[in-house]
Amino acid sequence: MFEAALIVALIIMSVSVFLCFIRVVIGPSVSDRVVALDLIGIHLIGIVGMLMILHESLYYVEVVLVLGILAFIGTIALSKFIEGGVVIDRDHR
């Protein structure tokens, strides 16, 4: 019963990642694609959390942390890039 709930949650999360991937492909502007990629990164955290319960091991905790940090840094860098500025600036427009 418990494993059934885990597998149902994994299927729901996979469908969510697929919907985000559709937005990545058809997005009309670059910002839509960046939003969808950020969302894929956040959903991957949930998927790895499910894998932690399924495999009953704590070794994936570092994976979760690094995924969170990479999603955040990548989103900040891409949004500064499409704005056309430097990554760390002092005078914000």
């Binding site: 950020d38 956040i42 942390l65 900040i76 949004s79």
Partner: peptide, 24 residues
Amino acid sequence: LTIIFVFMTAPISGLMIARSAFHN
């Protein structure tokens, strides 16, 4: 730590994307 990190950084990234989209 992961929970706190996601809770803190998701609004910041949303703000940055919206601001860059507006300026773009």
